[in-house]
Write a protein that binds this DNA or RNA. Structure first.
Lengths: 335, 335
DNA sequence: TTGAAAGCGCTAACAT
DNA sequence: ATGTTAGCGCTTTCAA
């Protein structure tokens, strides 16, 4: 294995000089730098991550905690994870993948062993049990999601309340008066996941403002579950003229079921989704939707983390403004 | 920060004793062990990952290379990644997430900096450019997928050729004579991804044996693409009585489109999928399918890697036998 | 602008 | 059964 000492010897300089050429933390004469760089190249030298971590107290790793539950919003999760990884690499960091399964213990483990310089936590619950630990940790943490009390932790999320309101306003403008909200799986609400509750709050408040009736139904994934949910909604509220859907797994079954019931979209009923643009665009009826900017969220989270690590700036809350794209699934209320 | 030396002092023993209590690499008297363990507990000691990596030449990290392309088989990818992470944790390892984007350079980086003890590589192409590097690396590597020439590298994969054959045989037994194969996106074949090509080969060979006509059509994701593909198939081969689908994103649209065309499943046409069981079970018509055992694949890959790391046994190729589950989407050929 | 040298916290060979 | 000690490869003062 090629070490820094080998490079120093090969270039005829001291070890510290090589180190400084690498880190750029002090000025090096042009000729020396070039000589060292050539030696590095020729010998194929790579700094040993462990040695560097020990000496510098920096591992160059960002830990990413992903929920293990693969039943919900899978594409969003993967998109975020990928964006985090790509952005982290662009800043010279690698990403350690943790499953939410480990819970608070994972936070202790990462913190204690100094294996990562910072943490990014996804799928945050309103009163998440990992938060106290993250707050007192010596390493920065950024949440993707918004808990009840961020309390000094950096947060990145879509403004889901505004997203919900935006859906309602779009439908109100089209003359709809009675709408149904097909939400995430019941478990998501039971866990008090921030984004789900905030969306619901946004919908309710805007529905109130616009004097609309709103029916909320959580919905598990799977064709059968969607069919059951739709059946119950149509029975309870036969006057429903529009659906807001925040459940990636439900959009396609919903459209197919409406078709089966001879309900034309958007002539008979409108559908507005809250999902990634790609999902909305590829549906059987291209969906009017508020985009969940998964890539953006991942990218911003890393940028916050890196800002703290490199600059020392303390992280705040970044709420991304929702954008609604009108496609083929929404239209004027019938009659 | 609490160090091993702190623990040693607190317990009244030497540093090495603490180290050996932790590693179990030599016998320690019961009383000493308990005293040390109590000190560790009381002080809240965690070994410093970097220091350990430097001294032991082991990082306790397994690198996982995941394709960046999020357009294909997303749930499978995430399921595998999660299974890898969970299994790795069970063996005391953490997982570093790499995107395929970096290509061979990532292999060099990981290898050179000793940041990971081993690599698991997903989405392997038949003649993958990362293979030569992985072979000469000093750290073990296991592929999830099967290249043209594994050449000493450990491999884990579903036996996709057998899976394809199994689909054909099931349909042959039901009297079908003319079948269409809706495959992955064209790009997947262009990249010569192993599993896609092997499935096709298995289908073709079995179709030959059973004297069936087989039409293969790659298919991009998205409703429109599936509709176009189905349209062309029905036009070219109006006698088609069964579909084999290896494209998670296409199954649901396909079923909906068939319904629209008044083709009843399975009375008029049969559908057999190659996809995770969960996807098959949740479809609008529960699908007869060969399961892609994503969890299993992830788990087995880690077990291979760990076997090499811990035991030194050299890894072979593990081809998982396909299993076909009959559900509601397949039945006797019409007429 | 460069070098010398003291650790960083842990492991493992060598002693006893 | 336990202790002593020499590194592992790098960063970073301190000195020149």
């Amino acid at each position: 294995m090629v070490t820094l000492a080998d490079v120093a010897r090969h270039a005829g300089v001291s070890a510290s000089t090589v180190s400084y050429v690498l880190s750029g933390k002090r000025s090096i004469s042009r000729s020396t730098r070039e000589r060292v760089e050539r030696s590095i190249e020729e010998l194929g030298y790579r700094p040993h991550a462990g040695a560097r971590a020990l000496a510098s107290n920096r591992s160059g790793i960002i830990a990413l905690m992903v929920p293990l539950r693969t039943d919900i919003y899978v594409p969003v999760m993967l998109q975020i994870a990928m964006a985090v990884t790509t952005t982290a690499r662009a800043h010279g960091y690698d990403v350690l993948l943790l499953t939410g399964e480990e819970g608070p213990e994972a936070v202790r483990r990462i913190e204690g062993s100094a294996v990562a310089d910072a943490m990014i936590v996804m799928d945050v619950e309103l009163d998440d049990e990992r938060l106290p630990l993250l707050r007192t940790a010596r390493r920065p943490a950024v949440l993707i999601g918004l808990p009840a009390d961020a309390g000094g932790l950096g947060c990145v999320d879509l403004d889901f309340a505004a997203a919900g309101a935006l859906c309602v306003e779009h439908l109100a403008g089209l003359g709809h008066r009675e709408i149904a909200f097909i939400g995430e799986a019941p478990g998501v609400y039971e866990r008090h996941t921030g984004f789900a509750e905030r969306t619901l709050a946004g919908l309710r408040s805007a529905a109130g403002t616009h004097d609309m009736r709103l029916l909320h139904r959580p919905c598990a994934s799977g064709w059968t579950a969607v069919a059951a949910t739709l059946g119950r909604i149509l029975e309870e509220r036969p006057g429903t003229t529009a659906f807001v859907v925040q459940n990636e797994a439900a959009t396609d079954p919903l459209l197919a079921l409406l078709r089966q019931q001879r309900l034309a979209v958007p002539e008979d009923v409108s559908v507005v989704a809250i999902c990634p643009d790609q999902v909305a665009a590829q549906a059987s009826v291209p969906l009017t939707a508020v985009a969940v900017p998964a890539q953006d969220m991942g990218r911003r989270a890393v940028e916050q983390v890196v800002a703290v690590l490199d600059g020392g700036e303390t992280a705040g809350t970044v709420l991304l403004a929702p954008e609604l794209t009108v496609r083929a699934s929404s239209g004027p209320a019938p009659r």
